[in-house]
């Protein structure tokens, strides 16, 4: 009886001695887990934003987008224009497996509507001319070029713009490709120039190419495309 008691006392003493560092380790691990869970939580909070996109504003961006020759734009446009009920049966029947393959973890959402959206989008994605190269960097590079081209198409420089001027902005996107935040992080020093940059992004409003990227490689999206820094610096001006 003395033996177990002695062991218990020793154990308690050991626990007391290492108590705080153990607690630290436990708490740290708890914090990390909480952090990871929070990330998931934060992420799963995004989909509502995605689906909340109201019909009027979608239609408005379509008016602006119509003269573009952007890759992937036409198909996605018609899809977005189509009311969800019409799309749902046909597309989900065909493409749901592809969606699950593309984003198995993110699709934990119980929202059937979101699944439909993804499915519909994946169906369109398959038809886009953009040939993304396998392998992260090259793939990212092709998306970057496409994004830059879309912005160049919408960028009207003020006549006061000059070679050598530059403005850097940070944009925040959601997986639908919609821009939800624009901030100038490095001003050109000219208000009209900065405004022209902001207007170019607002005119694009929705990067279908980013939505496509998200469907193909959500990890790449999270890593590099949720937040983007864009440097606008004209190189083709007269002066």
């Amino acid at each position: 009886m003395a033996q177990p008691l002695a062991t218990a006392i020793k154990l308690r003493r050991q626990i007391a001695r290492f108590g705080d560092s153990l607690a630290v380790a436990v708490l740290l691990s708890l914090a990390l887990h909480a952090g990871v869970v929070a990330l998931f939580f934060i992420h799963s909070q995004r989909p509502p934003e995605r689906t909340v996109v109201t019909p009027p504003s979608i239609r408005a961006s379509l008016v602006e987008l119509s003269p573009k020759a952007a890759p992937a734009a036409p198909e996605v446009k018609t899809q977005r224009r189509t009311p969800p009920p019409a799309v749902r049966p046909a597309v989900s029947a065909q493409v749901v497996p592809a969606t699950v393959k593309a984003a198995p973890q993110r699709d934990d959402d119980r929202s059937a509507e979101r699944r439909q959206l993804l499915a519909a989008a994946a169906a369109n994605g398959a038809a886009t001319p953009l040939q993304a190269v396998e392998g992260g960097d090259e793939q990212a590079a092709s998306y970057i070029a496409a994004i830059a081209a879309l912005l160049a198409e919408q960028w009207s420089r003020p006549p006061s713009a000059r070679l050598g001027m530059s403005a850097k902005v940070r944009i925040i996107t959601v997986p639908t490709g919609r821009v939800v935040g624009i901030s100038v992080i490095d001003s050109s020093g000219s208000e009209p120039f900065d405004r022209s940059v902001q207007l170019a992004i607002e005119r694009v409003g929705q990067f279908d190419i980013i939505a496509e990227l998200y469907r193909r490689d959500p990890a790449l999206y999270e890593r590099q495309f949720r937040q983007l820094e864009i440097l606008f610096t004209p190189e083709d001006l007269r002066l």
């Binding site: 990212a140 160049a152 198409e153 983007l228 440097l231 610096t233």
Partner: peptide, 11 residues
Amino acid sequence: ELTIKVTRGSD
């Protein structure tokens, strides 16, 4: 975070 460079415009 990566930086995209836009050097042209449509004006």
